[in-house]
Amino acid sequence: MSTAVGDAAPHQRTFKVWRGDKTGGKMVDYTAEITPGMVVLDAIHQIQATQASDLACRWNCKAGKCGSCSAEINGKPRLMCLTRMEALPEGDVTVQPMKAFPNIRDLVTDVSWNYTVNKKITKFTPANPGTRFVAEDGTFRMQQRDVERTQEMRKCIECFLCQDTCHVIRDHEKHEVFSGPRFFARAASLEMHPVDVADREPFLKNEGGIGFCNITKCCTEVCPEHITITDNAIIPLKERIADRYYDPVTMLWRWVTGADKKDG
């Protein structure tokens, strides 16, 4: 837990920033003047404004709400706008682009793969009016406690830090066969929606490759929105898939009762 920002005197810090693109590059040293409450993104802006006006970095809201300024600070995937200088240990600060995606330039990476994966997830498909939870006029009647699991996953700001830190993508480069934590969270938000009637379990098991996840929880550790991705999205989905494809008793039960669709 961080402490309140005081009025400490400005001081100098050295930043080692990746300059280059996918063909190559190097870490370049810059010095920035640190004032109270400053975050890494401020330092990068200062370097941009005074020393390297072409230093490429993405950013938008500067308040941890848009998920643009993802980078690896001192080796850890983080949002630059939420990383306070006081929270970093003494010494140089390294700032690098995300490793799991192709580098475009400096701190900017090509995250288009994520948008491609997103398209594969069946969109929200509400039940017909006049059914459970859907009034005749098409408006929904859902209890707060029934939507909270979905709402947690919808806090996602698509910074893709979870995708970056996930070793299945980062080290094993299973982009073709694995959707990654961000999209398991999205799928979970839809699968747990009381009104949704689409079935994404076959996708998750097959193209989505949820079986590649070995629940080592780095996604949850880096999530700046503190979404419990592993425990509240991935493991519940794995359990649903176990019901459907691996548990002989529930499989038999489904066969007997004819419930080949998901619950609820």
Partner: peptide
Amino acid sequence: GRKDCFAGG
């Protein structure tokens, strides 16, 4: 957890 809702029925 396997349920999508807790409204009964």
